[in-house]
């Protein structure tokens, strides 16, 4: 995204946000959230490792069992490449959690190939190189930072050529893969705190809204994801109640099925 395009996008978010009156320097202890817009016009979608970091603090996770080496299908449809790119970047974060340098390096190459396939390879080349170099040095913080930069650069490049919808599919792919792994980990070692990490109803609504605005991408996988989000919504939008093990398992079944659909041809 060019800075100006980004500015316009951000201004739109700002315009959709709330203009409040200044009440002085004292910080109000409470605000009336009903006055705030209920619409999530745009969000900074959390990185998978933001969730993985919280998950790690709940206990030891065997990240190696979640590392995926499958290179996936070579798609020609740009929306499919975008979805896959998001999941591959998420796989990069998983490989970093597992401190699996060879897989991280493969993912660096894969990300570059997919970015080229979607026409934004140039902006990714330096990041792919940095990921590989940092993985060689086992500098995991740098790899995490470069994966974030990679996703940001891909999305900026897409937005620059007015491919915002593809950019949103990158985020969606990453979110689905992150949710698949989160639910897999929590299903195996259930904890209420782990399940609570799924409490992301506004984010899910955001993705639903975005998908509904992509009728031109007439692909079975996108329809399948749209239907799946409808199924997942009531399972995570539970207010102050706890998300039970049964729901976590069901979300894992759904996201695993979608994950498989994203990497394989229809």
């Amino acid at each position: 995204m060019t800075p100006f395009t980004k500015y316009l996008k951000l201004s739109t978010i700002a315009a959709a946000g709330l203009t409040l009156c200044v009440h002085g320097a004292e910080v109000p202890q409470r605000i009336d959230i009903k006055q705030l817009s209920k619409t999530v016009e745009d969000v900074v979608v959390p990185l998978p490792n933001e969730i993985f970091g919280a998950l790690n603090k709940l206990g030891t996770v065997n990240w190696k069992e979640h590392v995926r080496n499958d290179k996936g299908t070579n798609f020609t449809e740009r929306p499919r490449i975008a979805l896959l790119l998001g999941t591959v970047i998420a796989d990069g974060f998983i490989a970093v959690q597992a401190e699996d340098a060879p897989t991280v390096k493969e993912i660096g190459q894969r990300v570059l190939a997919l970015a080229k396939g979607i026409g934004v390879g140039n902006s990714i080349t330096p990041h792919a190189k940095a990921i590989i170099e940092a993985a060689d040095k086992r500098n995991w913080d740098s790899v995490r930072q470069e994966l974030d930069r990679t996703q940001n650069s891909v999305q900026q490049a897409m937005n620059e050529v007015h491919d915002e919808k593809l950019s949103q599919l990158v985020s969606l792919g990453g979110w689905l893969r992150g949710t698949e792994v989160l639910t897999s980990v929590v299903s195996k070692h259930f904890s209420a705190d782990g399940a609570e990490l799924l409490h992301q109803p506004d984010l899910l609504s955001y993705f639903q809204t975005r998908l509904q605005a992509m009728p031109e991408f007439n692909l079975p996988i996108l329809r399948e994801i749209g239907d799946a989000l409808v199924q997942v919504k009531p399972l995570i939008d539970v207010g102050n109640a706890r998300i039970p093990p049964k729901s976590v398992k069901k979300i894992n079944d759904i996201t695993t099925r979608l994950g498989s659909g994203i990497v394989t041809r229809d």
Binding site: K6, Y7, L10, S11, I13, A14, A15, G17, L18, T19, L20, C21, V22, L36, S37, V40, V43, V44, V45, P46, L47, N49, E50, I51, G53, A54, L55, K57, L58, D141, R144, Q145, D148, R149, Q151, N152, D193, E196, L197, Q200, D202, L203
Partner: peptide, 27 residues
């Protein structure tokens, strides 16, 4: 870890804006 993505815009003096963000317990 500082995220690459960010929010931005412009405001007049005395104006506020609200943005919504998903946060995770434990972080």
């Amino acid at each position: 870890q500082v995220r690459e993505d960010y929010w931005g815009g412009d405001l007049g003096s005395g104006e506020k804006k609200a943005v919504r963000q998903q946060l995770f317990k434990g972080n």
